[in-house]
Computed example of a mutant assay.
Amino acid sequence: MTTTCAIGLMSGTSMDGIDIAMLRTDGVAEIEIGPSLFVPYEAAFRRRIENSLETAKAIVKRDDRPGDLQGLEREITLRHARAVETFLASPAGAWGRPEVIGFHGQTVLHRPQVGVTVQLGDGALLARELGVPVVYDMRANDMAQGGQGAPLVPAYHAALARTLPEPFSGRYPVVFVNVGGISNITYVPEKGDPFAFDTGPGNTLIDQWVSREGGVPFDAGGAIASEGGIIVSVVERYLEVPFFEKAGPKSLDRNDFTLDLAKDLELSDGARTLAAVSAEAILKSAEHMPEKPKLWIICGGGRKNPHIVGDLRAGAEKAGAEVIVAEDAGLDGDATEAEAWAFLAVRSLNGLPLTFPTTTGCREAVSGGVLAQPSTVQA
């Protein structure tokens, strides 16, 4: 199978900006990782997206755009277009001309129990702006086939697991952990399909807490949490939520967990406690795995929080496993999700499955995505 040069675009549940990454891949086993870039949203635009989550609660069908969501969708799309142009105008553009773009968009509603997931992003407009074919809306077909619509990254994680360098190669089961706004894991066995599910809040509760109590958008480097302590009773209350007792596949919306259980804490204690909640929720996911993991690989913004990673290491060591961050294995933990969207776009072009019964609960392994060709898109 021939390789394709692809760009992946990801704006995750942290709503902090746009991750861009480039790959050459056949969508199966050949992966050559190229350059990447992060383009941050300014604070005012981030607040606008956050405010849209309330408006999005009125959505019934996934093409509904109540209130100002239609205008926001257009602006999000154009911001992605300008970000790609900046990326390609930089030295990164010399790495290759993209043949396809995988476009995630911005999730504003995820309700798998009623078969609705909404990512704001106009793939046709993006294709027209950039003159490159765009694969978008990659979650919808999975949900039409009875799946949760998330997580979608496991197909890429499984491919990466086969390419890990020494001393990490062959240490199955290996678990990739993406700590974004919501955390999710991909369990990769030595043989067979991966399985995956959301594990609980990642950064979202910490971000909400320090924004509300401290007036800052996130706890950079865990600095606020470093002044506090873990309130064990609060961690225990979070872990008593019925979600954690369910086996996968399962997925979450950003709003499924709130700060209600953390009220009345001091700022730094709250930040440290919620970091512990994130880590303990990830460790608890091992209860739903066929075998205990031997290796955990941490990706996403949460790997920069030393308290989350430290708690994960301490818990994993008790079970005889090792925790590393993506960079320890030669990967870019900031770009992994965007890389996945490039990988999935190529799989979509080739009609290969994006999701599996073991990752989302779909009835059978299914491909997905909508292809927008710039030559057929009308203004």
Score class of each variant (00 low, 15 high):
223 A>L: 14
224 I>Y: 05
224 I>L: 11
227 E>D: 13
228 G>N: 08
228 G>V: 07
228 G>H: 05
229 G>K: 02
232 V>P: 02
234 V>Y: 02
236 E>V: 07
236 E>C: 03
236 E>S: 12
237 R>I: 05
238 Y>T: 00
239 L>H: 02
239 L>S: 05
240 E>P: 06
241 V>C: 02
241 V>F: 06
242 P>V: 12
243 F>T: 09
243 F>G: 00
244 F>D: 06
245 E>K: 07
245 E>P: 05
245 E>N: 12
246 K>C: 11
247 A>S: 15
247 A>D: 15
248 G>W: 02
248 G>D: 07
248 G>K: 01
248 G>F: 03
248 G>Q: 06
252 L>S: 05
253 D>L: 10
254 R>D: 02
254 R>W: 02
255 N>G: 13
255 N>Q: 15
256 D>R: 11
256 D>N: 14
260 D>I: 07
260 D>P: 04
260 D>W: 09
263 K>L: 14
263 K>D: 15
264 D>E: 15
264 D>M: 14
266 E>Y: 10
267 L>Q: 08
268 S>V: 00
268 S>M: 07
268 S>D: 05
269 D>C: 08
269 D>Q: 13
271 A>F: 08
272 R>S: 08
273 T>V: 11
273 T>S: 12
275 A>I: 02
275 A>P: 01
276 A>T: 04
279 A>E: 08
279 A>S: 15
281 A>T: 02
282 I>K: 08
282 I>R: 00
282 I>S: 04
283 L>M: 15
283 L>R: 07
286 A>V: 09
286 A>K: 00
287 E>D: 10
288 H>V: 10
288 H>S: 14
289 M>C: 14
292 K>V: 12
293 P>I: 08
294 K>I: 00
294 K>L: 11
295 L>C: 04
297 I>N: 10
298 I>K: 00
300 G>L: 13
301 G>K: 02
302 G>H: 03
302 G>P: 06
303 R>G: 08
303 R>F: 09
